[in-house]
């Protein structure tokens, strides 16, 4: 999987979000919290589908994780989720477990990055 140029956290996206909300830091913190809950659920869905070797049911949680991660600048996780979504659509189960594991470890990194950015306690 080529993840070159996909940072764990893209500051440019967060800055755009700050611009759009007039620097409403509280809103972004709340958004990150929502993301933490929602992302965890989607990750669970991905891990369960991978464990069951079920590419079809991995598509939806991977799609949602891809999309919400991109909204908050979690570009690396978004790229991984996208790869998983595409594999799921193509019905490919090979490597699904490894990709799911990569998503899980990147998820942990992403949450840590939000803490480091002061957006999560």
């Amino acid at each position: 999987m080529n993840l070159d140029g996909a940072p764990v956290l893209d500051d440019a996206v967060l800055d755009e979000l700050r611009d759009a909300t007039g620097g409403d830091e509280e809103f972004i913190v709340d958004l990150v919290e929502t993301y933490a809950t929602e992302g965890a659920a989607n990750l669970d869905g991905i891990l369960a589908a991978a464990a069951a070797g079920d590419p079809a049911s991995i598509v939806r949680p991977a799609h949602t994780l891809k999309s919400s991660s991109a909204s908050l600048g979690a570009m690396r996780l978004s790229a991984i989720a996208r790869t998983i979504e595409e594999a799921g659509r193509a019905g490919v189960s090979d490597g699904l477990a490894a990709d799911a594991e990569l998503a899980r470890s990147t998820w942990v990194e992403t949450l840590e990055a939000f803490v480091a950015a002061g957006l999560r306690r």
């Binding site: 809103f27 958004l31 809950t37 929602e38 939806r60 949602t64 909204s71 908050l72």
Partner: peptide, 8 residues
């Protein structure tokens, strides 16, 4: 379906 996307 994404609460994050809805909020944004």
């Amino acid at each position: 379906d994404s609460a994050v996307n809805r909020k944004v």
